[in-house]
Nucleic acid binder design. Sequence first.
DNA 1: TAGATTGTTAATCGATTAACAATC
DNA 2: TAGATTGTTAATCGATTAACAATC
Lengths: 210, 210
Amino acid sequence: MNTNKEFVSRLLKYRNVIMNLKKLGIVKVFSDNLGDASGTTSSQVRKDFSQLEITGNKRGGYNIDHLIEKLNSVLGENTSHKVIIVGCGNIGRAMIEFNGYHNSSLEIVAGFDTSQSIINEDAAVPVYPIEKMTDYIKEHSIKVGIIAVPESAATEIYEKMVEAGIKGVLNFARVHIREIDGTFINTVNIELQIENLFYFVNVQEKKNKK
Amino acid sequence: MNTNKEFVSRLLKYRNVIMNLKKLGIVKVFSDNLGDASGTTSSQVRKDFSQLEITGNKRGGYNIDHLIEKLNSVLGENTSHKVIIVGCGNIGRAMIEFNGYHNSSLEIVAGFDTSQSIINEDAAVPVYPIEKMTDYIKEHSIKVGIIAVPESAATEIYEKMVEAGIKGVLNFARVHIREIDGTFINTVNIELQIENLFYFVNVQEKKNKK
DNA sequence: TAGATTGTTAATCGATTAACAATC
DNA sequence: TAGATTGTTAATCGATTAACAATC
């Protein structure tokens, strides 16, 4: 079975769309609709489902409850995912607040920082000094962490996290971190995304002028 | 020539790495090092350069100044990119602040929101009521915008932005937005990334237990 | 039934990788 | 020279797409 990142991300998108449809009272869905809503094609949807041995009805599409059940058994129940965050500057703090009122699957349970002025161990989401990170990860069996520190510190923090037992990292720093065996890194590089957009916008603009 | 997103993103990464090397006083770089630092392979680097007709020296690698010049001519100078942001809640505000002290290529010039309490037209980065968005985009010829509104509002905002003249959008909302012809959307879905990590971490954990 | 949609196979496509001759 | 690295070609790989028979 195909198990790459893109495949899993598509499955997560499908589930997300389906959950929204369910809220609207919809009972069945066609590969065509699901493709549109997920930004892919009907072929792709059917192919993916086929790999998971999810079957539909030749004319009636896919039953939503059935889909959810199957997707959950592959993806795991969409329960809350406890996560810590290192670096509680702008992005870090935004993530913590985002966390609070958005009823998502993501639950940030603690933050860590070096700056004395940011530390607040009594907040709803406590922010501890970085020295306490290793113990916290071990005590709470944290498996996934977010890195929101400056690029110069990212690799070092990553290594410390992994040493303490973290297996997955979402990296907001603007450096490439080399994955340690048995761990996973997803990188979100906002500036790169913006620069990427400008490239395509500019190229098109030049074309149009011709 | 190859012009997909991944290709352009690699070029941007190369430039970023090279700029850092230059700061360190380094004059030439090998495809091997550049691959490592960008999270790709030496083959890929040489292939990419070959497509851009960037040449190195059979034993001496690539001259950094030469590389920067060539990359700039393809990617455009890395000057400041003026951007607006719609939705100034948590993520939006974080982006605005991030913007301030990080000397990056990204410059957020204005924010827009519907919430009266957030609006502040006199701030360093002013936040206007959403009604003023269209005029602002036209007056300042803004080409790229960030969407940081709840998913229910994302598509509508996108369409308004495009109508006003925006060509590229960075989307933080958790929905797939269908691209209007001639425009570009990059999506950053943080929750999806986290869920994606948990999937792989969990799969591995199960494997290890066996 | 006629029409629509699935499920699956084969074709396509393009990106990545490997390999190695050229050459500094 | 010997060794290292580029530049390019060909091979590989896998994901996506297209197509259509099966069937509800």
